[in-house]
Amino acid sequence: MPLVSIVDVRKSFGANEVLKGVSLPVEKGDVVAIIGRSGSGKSTLLRCVNGLETHDAGSIMVDGLEVGGAKTDMRALRRHVGMVFQQFNLFPHLTALGNVTLAPRVVEKMGEGRARELGLEMLAKVGLAEKRDAYPSQLSGGQQQRVAIARALAMRPKALLCDEITSALDPELVNEVLRVVEKLAGEDMTLILVTHEMRFARDVGTKLVFMHQGRVHEQGAPKALFAAPQTAELQQFIGASFK
């Protein structure tokens, strides 16, 4: 069974149907890159996976738990699904280490010492061990985003959702974040990325999903798809993106 299985999911905001029956299986270790124009439903789909948005119809299963199911403990589900946001969303009143250790301490009831150890390990993983005592306002955008990744990893998620995590960054800071994600992919972490980084999607992704007007318009192996898009829309999108 896939780790994440999205079946015929629909979602409307008022009269505007943003997801019109999306299905997508994600196997363990997959690196799924979701691309598409803004407004095509990419972010909404991602946010449905950990229940930040509730879907109207269809089903989403994560590691055997149904998202939004009557019997599902959404908190148990969210422990398995990390999320990294476009705007970092770090806790501004906590240091880098404090950001990473808050959930382990509060949610996992981990002791101060163990949480600190885990936090430092996660910060080291994103290359920011020496910034442990810095507050978010003292960090660059790239560093903040890496702390946000460390914070999500500290919960030992089975899958990590990345919602346009480099879109708010200055161009010269994008790579340091992408390198961290690439490293995670190399460690067999299951990743679902909504991204505008086409080269990254092509080179690191194991699966490419092109969304268009609330549907999966085309999907397949990234390299094959980029080399030979089957639909005019994807062809046009790729053409515009690589210009």
């Binding site: 950990n50 930040l52 969303n89 959930a103 999500a152």
Partner: peptide, 19 residues
């Protein structure tokens, strides 16, 4: 977004409110 980050980390509403 910061509240959503807390929710995504499996915190309860009360934990998000407090911390």
């Amino acid at each position: 977004g910061v509240i959503e980050a807390g929710v995504s980390l499996a915190m309860t509403r009360l934990q998000v409110l407090r911390h």
